[in-house]
Amino acid sequence: MSEAILDIPLDAGNPVEPFLRMDRMPHIWCPACGIGTTVNCFARALESSKLDLNKVAVVSGIGCTGRVAGYANLDSFHTTHGRAIPFATGLKLSNPELQVVVYSGDGDLFAIGGNHFIHAARRNMDIKVICVNNLTYAMTGGQTGPATPSEVISATSPYGVFEPSFNLVQLAEAAGASYVARWTTFHVKQLARSMEEMLHKKGFCFIEVLSPCPTLYQRRNKMGDGLDAMKFYKQVSKVRNGAPTSECSLSKAGEIVVGKFVDRDRPDYLELLTHQMHASLGNRYADPEITTCSEG
């Protein structure tokens, strides 16, 4: 329901406050960090989605973006490093009326959690994955991650990254995601719209958001401050909706292709399961009644 939206007090300083745990502010993110921007977009997407916020859950892993769960005024789970997606899988399957959003970082989702990402996409698990990609492990001090582009200097690549990085959107598509998009924190309107669209899309959905880490990534690579990041995003981003994801890889200073790349309909995990069980067991199949009751 949309009561929460209508309840926004007239004297509210910020219209996204009802979506946040204001008793936990100030947050821990650095000045000019992009994670807060993505949360703002997410709040606006929730607002315009008209979803019942009692039925939206956020699951995060570990890292700077992992802290999003702690600030979202929703049922929220700050899990272990890399395991937000399998946690979300269990949550969704036990309580399918929940809209389960995984909100985590590039290192969490694609290094330690990479296996879970591809398998959830393969199953077309009905969860929505938002990856804030700051191209580094920020919480631990700016080390090289699976999305760190070549030639970048990081805490663990003091002479420059030489190993190839993942193209996250291509990986998501190849693994089977129903919806794949990429934006930057410069594209706030498009990002919020994309998030809203994803909240109404069935199946495994993935949005990559490029987001600045001025404290670690940009400083080490002499890329300036937060404002410089916005200028950089503005300058090198190209909106190419429907672009083949194979053409969307990232480099240190090259073009950033943004847009919605994949939007396809595949039966999700629960649909497939139900179909198979009906086909095999007929009326012997019992619809899952998973949630347990208390006494009385």
């Binding site: 699951v59 049922d75 789970f77 899990t79 272990t80 890399g82 395991r83 997606i85 399998p86 946690f87 979300a88 899988t89 269990g90 949550l91 969704k92 399957l93 036990s94 309580n95 929940l98 296996n115 879970h116 398998h119 998973i290 949630t291 347990t292």
Partner: peptide, 18 residues
């Protein structure tokens, strides 16, 4: 996909009510 996933998926299910 592995035991790491199994051992946390079940906890997601518990918080979903199972």
């Amino acid at each position: 996909e592995d035991e790491l996933a199994a051992s946390i998926a079940l906890q997601g299910a518990v918080w979903g009510g199972a």
